[in-house]
Design a binder for these strands. Sequence first.
RNA 1: GCGCGAUUAGCUCAGUUGGUAGAGCAACCCAUUUACACUGGGAAGGUCGCAGGUUCGAGUCCUGCAUCGCGCACCA
Length: 703
Amino acid sequence: MNDKFLTPYNPTETEDRIYTQWKESEYFNPDKLPSRHRTPFTIIMPPPNANGHLHAGHALTLTLQDIFIRYKRMQGFKALWVPGADHAGFETQIVYEKKLEKEGKSRFKMDRDVLYKEIYDFTMENKKFMEHEIEKMGSSCDWSREKFTLDPSVVKEVQKTFKKLYDDGLVYRGSRIINWCTKHQTSLSDVETESKEQKDKLYYFKYGPFTISTARPETKFGDKYVVMHPDDARYAEYKHGQTFELEWINGPITATVIKDEAIDMAFGTGVMTITPWHSGIDFEIAERHNLPKEQIIDFVGKLLPIAGEFTGMKIAEVRPKMVEKLKEKGLLVKIDEEYVHSVPVCYKCATTIEPQVKAQWFVKMKPLAELALKAVKEGRVQFMPDNFEKIFKYWMENTLDWNISRQIVWGIPIPAKHCEKCDEFVVDTEDVTKECQKCKGAFVKDTDTFDTWFSSGQWPLLALGYPDSSDFKNFYPTDLMETGSDLIFKWIPRMVIFGLYLAGKEPFRHVYLHGMVNDAQGKKMSKSKGNVVNPLDLIAKYGTDALRLGLVVGNTPGSEISLREDKIRGYKNFSNKLWNITRFVLSSAEGEVYEGKVQDEELAKILVDVTGDIENYRLHLASEKLYHYVWHRFADEILEESKKILKEGSEEEKKERKQLLLHILAQVLRALHPFIPFVTEEIWAHMPIADKKMLIIEEWPGK
RNA sequence: GCGCGAUUAGCUCAGUUGGUAGAGCAACCCAUUUACACUGGGAAGGUCGCAGGUUCGAGUCCUGCAUCGCGCACCA
């Protein structure tokens, strides 16, 4: 027996060496697998952001995907797992802006090209860390196929998709209400905002014969339309279109009555004035009745000249001052101090979103969402756990047009131009149009970039080299998409849509969504709370195998998991237990070669069970069953009873028992390999088995 | 306001089709160098959130309620 089993298992010493062996074997590459591997099984890795280090959530997703890939590879599938890296437009730009802030710089004072180059270098540097960490997790992904979301071929294809959507009438440029982050100076899509509940004051003002209420008096300077529900009996005497004179903030104005069903009669007085430039609802009302829109607040959050004496002031400053002024004019009716409502905030900096009207590129979602909805209803895309199907459908039935323009440099440029003179625009992927056909003015390139999710949404296609590559022909549609449940809106629907729209086929058949990884007390990890767990620290202490098992056992699909160190420590002990079992088996069976003749019905039955569990995405059960069998059945009982047989049995009984021990150990190593690949591969190398291959391509033991 | 999820041992969580409650950790007792102390054996610990219902039988199915968490909407 090898002396190495005389000392406890050392993950740190083992893991990097084994990973190198796997890489050298080239078995991560499906084209290099032995001939028994014919039917493709494909997973596209959700590309981690290339702007920093991996967190616990990455550790979980990589573990789950690697388990499925290794399992399928052992079963004889032509397993492909495509790794990637995401430039993560807005998020990376924010990370870099924070870095600039620390250095006392601002991106708004920098040349665009210089800034782009700096973020590019920063990203390339961080991409290396991220890739190294994917390797540390034991991920058996095919590095020869790795893609980056800013690879020239990817950029080109994303721009072509934009052109195609435009030609098909599914992308349009429009001046519509958008979510504007005054800190980051960019528009955001609806999924890039969050709701924040807060308590504000609700002000009631006299507006001619009416009393209106508002939480945002500072937007009211230009309000000239007063709106009420057509069925509201209280205001039946006022007719739609009727005008009246009134005294308002900065003097007398003429206002018009508008009747619209969007008004909630139960709210406040049932009457409101509208500010179409700074409110989604008001914008819609204005659109319906063809009313003018006027900007009150500029893009940095300061009042425009329409505010008269308040021009140039910030919102927070203006609000009390103008309320005071209205009070002096006798127009303040009352103030409700306890008005609790939610406001949209930037999901990254929590700055309150200022709705603005701005010319942007939009994707017309309804016809595309219908494609996705149909695919899900027909079962061509299935969710695990299946309650996500309901959420997906609801979302697809209630889509808003998607703003894909971002006013940031870090991203894929939108291939469009507009005329300096008349604002005519043109989509130009080849950069050939120089002059406006309408007015002969000069065209300038759009400086906006795409929403990251516009390119990420096409990732299953792009990662496989859509449209012409052989990989795309061989491996699309993919089999499984494993990602966090928080991406059910941001990402999953967009991938389904683009897959169906561009390739005519759903991008994946199954979606497995894991829950968020929380700290030991079940609290969300965040830098501000200081409870962030770094997977690399855990790997250094307990080994990757232990971390992987700790993330998988008892973790049901979709539900949150509390990451506790004592649990991971327990699974480090399991690796060592397996190590010592091997020590006992190999020393007991010294000189014996595994003949593969014995069977063990009990184990065979468990392996059938485990196989069923994995097939049905019950990894938490599969892993626990194996753990329990190895520790409490194989070690505690079978090994113990073997001691007596090996000591007192006949020669025949001894030989049979040795074969049985080798058999169980071999089967258990195979079955555990997807879960704890390092220690099993290491032990496998010392098994007395003739003509064995590396464990990574050995046959899966269950039926 | 609408929707989703959770509520099971001290803690963190399993419990696949309804058939006398499980794991890991912690705590308790015993064993003291055993393949493994990163160990073994043992014992203890739960009216499965509450109230009804269906059933021969409910942690599991149905209804209602409560508490916690999350998402969406409104956000005048």
